[in-house]
C-alpha cells in the first residue's frame, strides 16, 4: 500500500491528528491558504510565531501548527502579538482569529495596531456569526438576519472591517472569500512580506450556524453565494452604494510603504545606544 502524505503535513505537529472544525467549515480552506503561502515563500515554520484568540478560527494554529503558538484570551491576540513582535522583530508574527474576536471584543486593538503600523500579519476569518458559542449575532452579521440573539432580526448595521483597517492606517489590506483560495494565498504571501500592518479578511462559510439561519444552506451553496455576490474592488469603485448592498467587495484595498513600529523601535534603541 502506498502511503501518501499531505504536502503541508510537515508544517503541523505530528501528534495532532484531528481538527475541531465542523463538516463544511471554511477554516480548512483558509488554513491551507496560510500554509501554502508559507510553503511557496520557502519559509521555515520556526520563522513564525502564531498568536490566536478565542473562537473556532483561533484553533487554526493552536494546536495544529508546528512552531511557537500562543493561544490567548478573547479579543486580545493582537495585543499579545504586539509584545511578541517588539521583542522578536526578526520573526514573522501572524495573528489568526475570527471576526468576533478581532473586530468585536478586540476591535480597539485591531484599530490601534493598524494605526501603529506594526509588522503583524492578521488573518481575520469573517463568518458573520458567533459559531463556537452557538450562532449569536455578530457585529459582522448582515442587518435583518435572524439569529439566536436577534430573534426578530438584527437591528444593527454591520461592520465593514477591511476599509476600517485601511482608514486606521494599515500598510496592506485585502479581502477574499473561501471561493478565492488562490487569490487569498497570493495576498497572504504579500501580507507576510509586507513591512507593516497587514490584514487579510477571509470571508469564510459557517454552514452549521450561519448557513442554517441565513437559509443559504450547506457549504457548497455558501461558496456559490460567495462566487455570485463577490465584486472586485476596481469594479466596486465605479458602482453606486445601492448596487453594492449585499455584495462582498474583494481584492486589495491598500498596498503602501510607510514607517513600521518594530523597526522604528530598533532604530531608536540603536541611535540611543550609539550616543553613549
Amino acid at each position: 500500500m502506498t502511503v501518501s502524505i499531505h504536502p503541508l503535513k510537515k508544517y503541523t505537529r505530528s501528534h495532532i491528528t484531528r481538527t475541531t472544525t465542523c463538516p463544511g467549515c471554511g477554516i480548512g480552506i483558509v488554513s491551507q491558504a496560510i500554509l501554502r503561502a508559507i510553503d511557496e515563500l520557502e519559509f521555515n515554520m520556526d520563522d513564525f510565531v502564531f498568536v490566536s484568540g478565542i473562537g473556532c478560527s483561533a484553533w487554526i494554529p493552536s494546536p495544529l501548527y508546528n512552531t511557537d503558538t500562543l493561544h490567548t484570551t478573547h479579543g486580545r491576540p493582537i495585543a499579545f502579538a504586539t509584545g511578541v513582535k517588539l521583542g522578536l522583530p526578526n520573526k514573522n508574527v501572524m495573528v489568526i482569529s475570527g471576526d468576533g474576536d478581532l473586530a468585536a471584543i478586540g476591535g480597539n486593538h485591531l484599530i490601534h495596531a493598524a494605526r501603529r503600523n506594526i509588522n503583524l500579519t492578521v488573518i481575520l476569518l469573517n463568518n458573520g456569526i458567533y459559531g463556537m458559542t452557538g450562532g449569536q449575532t455578530a457585529p459582522t452579521t448582515p442587518r435583518g438576519l435572524t439569529t439566536i440573539t436577534s430573534p426578530y432580526g438584527t437591528m444593527e448595521h454591520n461592520f465593514d472591517i477591511t476599509p476600517m483597517v485601511v482608514t486606521a492606517g494599515a500598510s496592506y489590506a485585502a479581502r477574499w472569500t473561501t471561493y478565492h483560495p488562490r487569490q487569498m494565498t497570493r495576498s497572504i504571501k504579500k501580507a507576510i512580506q509586507k513591512k507593516g500592518f497587514a490584514l487579510i479578511e477571509a470571508m469564510s462559510q459557517c454552514p452549521v450556524q450561519y448557513g442554517r439561519v441565513s437559509k443559504l444552506g450547506k457549504a457548497v451553496d455558501m461558496l456559490k453565494d460567495f462566487k455570485v455576490n463577490s465584486v472586485k474592488i476596481n469594479k466596486a469603485r465605479n458602482m453606486e452604494p445601492e448596487a453594492l448592498l449585499g455584495k462582498i467587495v474583494i481584492g486589495e484595498f491598500v498596498d503602501i510603504e510607510k514607517a513600521e513600529l518594530s523597526e522604528e523601535c530598533m532604530n531608536l534603541r540603536r541611535k540611543m545606544m550609539e550616543a553613549m
Binding site: L70, T72, R76, A79, G83, L86, G87, H109
Partner: peptide, 13 residues
C-alpha cells in the same frame, strides 16, 4: 488590557 497583554507577549519572547 493592551498593556498587560503586550507585556505577557514580550515575556514569552
Amino acid at each position: 488590557i493592551g498593556a498587560i497583554c503586550s507585556a505577557i507577549g514580550a515575556s514569552w519572547v
